[in-house]
Design a protein around this nucleic acid. Structure first.
Lengths: 342, 342
DNA sequence: CTGAAAGCGCTTACAG
DNA sequence: CTGAAAGCGCTTACAG
């Protein structure tokens, strides 16, 4: 046998037509039992795999969904992938996982590439650069071509498409209320992922909650350029006694810096961060955190997309808000209480 | 304009033949400058994107590489992805990222799917189940079809294909020598990822180094079912004074459990773990670790694969061992020394 | 320099 | 129940 086995070769070997082989393999009711069996057996024997390019060319459907995440350092996005992978398998779609590395150019190239590959739909969490520059023509191009698009987590309201997110603003607000209830008076919002929709919303929620009570304190410091010295200086000079951090990496790096300086967590300084991952879960003290429901966001993104693809939805964009909650852990309990728990 | 734009429609609009349009777009020297320009302009105007299915059907090349990782909780594998993504982009290949979730069945489905999609090559780190049951027929099937295959990190010698790895055994050995030099006498090898090639090799290295000096101590405990109580009990009863952990999650969970029990790290207990990620880097104490060079492994895997695909290599399998080293951090230094460093 | 024709490997409406 | 034929959208050897 030279080259790959295909329908033509199977047909020749069986002395029947290509059409019959094709129909037999697809278990068409047109074909007799005996023929089907002969065909199936030979196909099995030769390990026949249909050429998907030919099938896709014919059907013009790729049975593939593209998912674009902006980065992969925060475990949140790996949770999203886990949810998306599971749901895609369930629904019988391939998942094409892409990473934009927070770059608009890369994101654009990815989208073009996915279009060239005729994906049936795309789920995306916007890159920092895309959001900051509000350059979304590569995404409107998708909508123009009627390719279903779902934004998750890092979204924008400038696109008429489905979205999945948590209520970032409300969750920040609730976190601040908890800290206020604990008599914290100098509460800092520490922004480690500037230029993202979620950061802005979290900041908004913080402002809303804090304004009635105290003067707001905001510090912006990208988690990639975390400066332990600067953060400690700020906390000391502003007498910060609690922090709401925009993300897990920022929260944990802050706890570390402060513990080295002799701060007791949570006694001297309480910390809550957005996102639950291994980093915060296993830290000592473990990090109190707002669960962003990564797996659910990934799962719902695929669900929505498949429903759109298969035309099970109304035309109007759907905006899903995933329910969430605060996980209370050691970084907001005091050690006395902790002793009793463990 | 109804439906998608394609060569035929462009040709009609321009009143020239499909062949000429095709050649013009591929910038063929056969075509005149003027024609090329007319074609390019119209294509641009209509946002023409060639149908990749048709192109791939014709060329029988997908320009795509599949990469399969077993899980995504350990940051090591996200490092691999980062390296692979960058190298694939550089070489002009698409990367199809897949996750087997440590399941043989899933891994097999992924491989079949990648085959159906005619990927030009596959890079894989074996799932736990695949390795444990030594069920590799889905991978030999690739070799039978002359589809280039590269194993990375979690490899097996039962496949005649290229491999990328670090010297797990030697690195474990060296780590133990360091602990011995520090006068540690009761050194435990803590295995959090049982049934993987890397775990076995690390254990081998541990045995090799420890045997001449002390009685070996091995404890197997999957990182997913980490039991703080049990580990502490073991450490106390065996008077363990140092640990080599097979992975970062296991190492960090152990440090946490022991610190809560009052152990001073590293004074009472020194810890080294395989793999460098944010978890160990930001911990307090930060985790001394063997760098598994995730990004390099991903990068080399793609490099090798592309070289194979483009026939730039000899037939014999190539086994690359990536150089690595121990990152000395706080979990193996004592705090007095640490004070001076910071 | 341009174009007609064959072919990549499938699927399916149609004929028998 | 089986098969001949057209077509999915490209590329390219060949003819002019």
């Amino acid at each position: 046998m030279e080259g790959e086995i295909n329908l033509k070769k199977l047909a020749e070997l069986l002395n029947i037509s290509i059409s019959t082989v094709s129909k037999a393999l697809r278990n068409s009711p047109e074909i007799s039992k005996e023929t089907k069996q002969r065909v199936m057996e030979l196909a099995e024997f030769h390990n026949y795999i249909p050429n998907s390019f030919a099938q896709k060319l014919k059907s013009n459907k790729s049975q593939t969904i593209g998912i674009i995440i902006p980065e992969i350092s925060h475990q949140f996005f790996t949770h999203v992938l886990e949810g998306a992978v599971a749901e895609a398998r369930l629904r019988g779609y391939n998942l094409n996982i892409c990473i934009s590395n927070e770059s608009l150019l890369t994101e654009r190239n990815i989208v073009n590439n996915l279009m060239r590959n005729h994906v049936d739909g795309i789920a995306i969490s916007l890159s920092e650069e895309t959001y900051q520059r509000d350059e979304i023509s590569h995404l409107t191009a998708l909508l123009d071509r009627n390719i279903p698009l779902v934004l998750f987590d890092r979204i924008t309201s400038n696109l008429a498409c489905d979205t999945i997110s948590i209520n970032d603003s409300l969750n920040a607000e609730l976190a601040i209320y908890e800290l206020l209830k604990d008599q914290r008076k100098r509460i800092l919002y520490l922004s480690g992922i500037p230029n993202t929709s979620v950061d802005e919303k979290r900041k908004d929620g913080y402002f809303k909650a804090i304004r009635t009570k105290h003067r707001p304190l905001v510090l912006e410091m990208n988690y990639k350029e975390f400066d332990a010295h600067e953060i400690v200086k700020f906390i000391k000079s502003e007498k910060v006694d609690a922090i709401l951090a925009s993300d897990e990496l920022t929260a944990v790096q802050t706890i570390r810096a402060c513990k080295i300086e002799g701060f007791r967590i949570p006694d001297d300084l309480a910390v809550i961060g957005f996102s639950v991952g291994n980093l915060g879960k296993h830290y000592l003290p473990s990090l109190s955190a707002i669960d962003q429901k990564g797996a659910e966001q990934g799962e719902y993104a695929i669900k929505l997309l498949v429903d759109r693809i298969e035309n099970d939805l109304e035309a109007d964009p759907i905006n899903i808000e995933v329910d969430t909650n605060i996980i209370h852990r050691e970084s907001t309990l005091n050690y006395a209480a902790l002793k009793k728990i463990n």
